[in-house]
Amino acid sequence: MTAIPRDVRRAVVGVTANRQLHDGVHRDWLRRRYIEALERHACVECVILPTIDGDLSREETLRKFRGVMSRLDGLVLTGDESNLDPDIFNLQQRAWNRASDDVIPGERDRPRDRLSSIALSVAIELAMPILGICRGLQEMSVHRSGSLHADLSAAGEGVVHSENPNVPRDQQYLPVHTVQVVPGGLLSSIVGEGDLYVNSLHNQGITEVASGVQREAVAEDGVIEALSYTTSGTFQFGVQWHPEWHAATDATSQKIFSAFGNACHAYQSTGPLSG
């Protein structure tokens, strides 16, 4: 794919933050690797979307984010160590309102869940390009009522999907297993068919998708490693691995970011596709 020339006005994408709770202090954060990969290989500019505490109702929050995201050309759902809470995406009010246990470091991040639920709803309304990474792929699936396995390690199917905590962080992002690209899909049009060798740092996972969602790559144990939304004419796509980590040297990662960037610049030029 042809990269966007750097002398044209770049598209602007919203990138989801995560909530960090340390010493009783709440912070929004995300790793620089996402921004670096998006700026360099998608050729877009980034704004960080803040997490949501749930003090406003979901409908009030939706109205607020429609105003913000109508100025954007794409949405990126980042990864994080926390597991997502499906109740947020299922619109159960019990989990939407702020609660004392909303954030458990390394385990739960409901402020991020609320952000992704709202951002996905608005992006779908606007037919906006979406790129989901790791947790972001799971959010895309659950948002469309897909099932979520809470702990893949309990399935014992032979493929280890979580990282090894006993090696340095950079080594945790090295490729560890293969995935089969589904022929004829969006991913195959970007990187070709066959197997990809990918990194894997997740505890939750999906093996089935709901209506309007297409499998794009699958691991040997049946865990879905890439998906796309089929109800929009634009790029709305997610991967379970982390293409941002080695984007500077990995051609497959660069192709994925470039495809997303091209979709964002097309959206910037024409707006939502009709029909």
Rank of each mutant, 00 (worst) to 15 (best):
P175M: 01
Y173H: 13
R215A: 13
D195L: 08
G238N: 10
R215I: 06
H246K: 08
Q254R: 13
V182H: 04
R169A: 13
Q171G: 11
N203C: 04
Q180K: 14
N262V: 10
D250P: 10
A251K: 13
D195F: 03
E225W: 06
W241H: 03
D195H: 08
H177I: 07
L174E: 11
N262E: 15
S189T: 08
R169V: 15
G222Y: 12
F235A: 07
T234I: 14
C264D: 11
P165K: 03
S189R: 14
V218M: 11
Q172G: 09
E220A: 15
E216S: 09
T207W: 11
T178K: 08
L187K: 04
S200N: 06
S228V: 01
A251D: 11
N262D: 11
G184H: 04
G192R: 07
V213P: 00
T252A: 14
V176H: 00
T234V: 14
P175L: 00
A226S: 12
L201C: 07
V176Q: 09
W241D: 05
Q171E: 15
F237K: 09
G238P: 02
G205Y: 04
R169M: 14
Q214T: 05
G238W: 02
G205K: 11
G184C: 10
G238V: 02
S258F: 01
E216T: 05
T178H: 13
E220P: 10
N262K: 11
N166Q: 12
G185L: 05
N199Q: 03
Q240H: 07
N203L: 09
V239K: 12
P175N: 03
G222V: 11
S200Q: 06
G233Q: 13
S228W: 00
T230P: 00
Q236S: 14
Q172V: 08
A251V: 15
E225T: 01
Q171W: 14
G192N: 08
R215L: 10
T249D: 15
V176A: 08
G222W: 13
A210Q: 05
G185I: 01
L174Y: 07
S258A: 11
D221Q: 06
F260I: 06
V198Q: 04
L196N: 01
G212R: 04
D170P: 09
S258M: 08
V179R: 03
I224F: 04
H202P: 02
S188M: 10
S232D: 09
H246L: 12
A248Q: 14
G205Q: 07
A259W: 04
S211E: 14
W245D: 09
V179N: 00
